[in-house]
């Protein structure tokens, strides 16, 4: 299919982009890699009046090591992220999860910020930033603001980024020593969306898990933290059976939907199984 007509602007700075969004009104949309947007345009499920292309705004690109955290420009491609030495060294969970996003062609074009701002509950990266307590910088006509990952995802395809705002960058604190991470994705076919995905980071000390952070993909309208599993894991010995036991509460606090891939009951079952696998993998079992 061929998209409906729209206008196109390619601003050079964040300020210009914000101004263009405001000028374009309600139906203006940000595009960067366009890997989520293009199928919507082609199926005419989206018909924006103006597309504001942020792919070439310098400020929105690049990956920076801040010492205790890493800042990633929102328009960095998945390929940039997963091949960045900074990310691979300090935010391995993100590198690993990004490598599971879609396929190579899409990873070459799609952007980290785009995947977050799209707010797709089946997207892999929202769970990662949630698990890692990232902070997201948003620019708008009233200036800039910092939003914590836990406040960023609001509902299906809805995030804290307002109509005339742009996600500029994402800052992720480093985990430090003793932490292991894993992104475990369960899908029906290799290039399919996650039926359930689990981003896990666990700190192991003396053969015991001392801290755990776990976030789930596609288990509610937004990514959710498996808080009761996180608590249950505290102090647990690093063993498959103990981890499995602690993972039994993985579906608590989720709002699993039913679709062709999984009904509620099966999806909740998967949450328990995949959480246990992700934690085991992160803990090196």
């Amino acid at each position: 299919m061929i998209p409906s007509k729209f206008d196109y602007v390619r601003p050079k700075s964040v300020d210009e982009a914000v101004a263009a969004l405001k000028a374009g009104g309600e139906d203006s949309k940000v595009i960067a890699g366009g890997q989520s947007m293009l199928p919507l345009l082609r199926l005419r499920l989206a018909a924006p009046s103006v597309l504001v292309d942020c792919a070439r705004i310098d400020e929105m690109k690049g990956i920076k090591d801040n010492g205790d955290s890493v800042t990633i420009g929102a328009a960095s491609t998945h390929w940039d992220v997963m091949n960045s030495d900074i990310v691979k060294t300090h935010v391995k969970l993100l590198a690993d999860a990004t490598a599971t996003v879609a396929d190579p062609q899409i990873r070459h074009r799609g952007t980290f910020g785009g995947a977050l701002a799209h707010g797709d509950p089946a997207g892999d990266l929202p769970a990662v930033v949630l698990a890692l307590d990232a902070t997201l910088e948003i620019a708008g006509s009233k200036g800039r603001r910092q939003v914590a990952a836990k406040d960023f995802f609001l509902d299906y395809f809805t995030t804290a980024v307002g109509p005339d705002e742009i996600l500029v960058s994402i800052t992720i604190p480093k985990l430090g020593k003793g932490w292991g991470t894993c992104y475990e994705k369960f899908n029906r076919s290799a290039n399919g969306w996650a039926v359930v995905g689990v981003a896990a980071a666990v700190k192991v000390d003396g053969g015991k898990i001392t801290e755990a952070r776990i976030a789930l993909t596609n288990c509610a309208a937004i990514p959710v933290r498996a808080s009761s599993v996180e608590s249950a894991l505290k102090g647990v010995a690093v063993s498959a059976s103990e981890i499995e036991k602690a993972s039994q509460s993985a579906a608590d606090g989720t709002r699993a939907t039913s679709d062709l891939a999984a009904d509620k009951e099966y999806r909740e079952h998967l949450m328990r199984v995949i959480t246990a696998r992700a934690v085991s993998c992160a803990a090196g079992v």
């Binding site: 029906r188 076919s189 290799a190 290039n191 399919g192 969306w193 062709l260």
Partner: peptide
Amino acid sequence: YEGAVYDSDGQLLTASFADYLVPSAP
């Protein structure tokens, strides 16, 4: 992998390669 699925009103639920699972190499 593959199966065309309709709902009771006759909506084809597997109307794209995103839902109709033609296998890929892996």
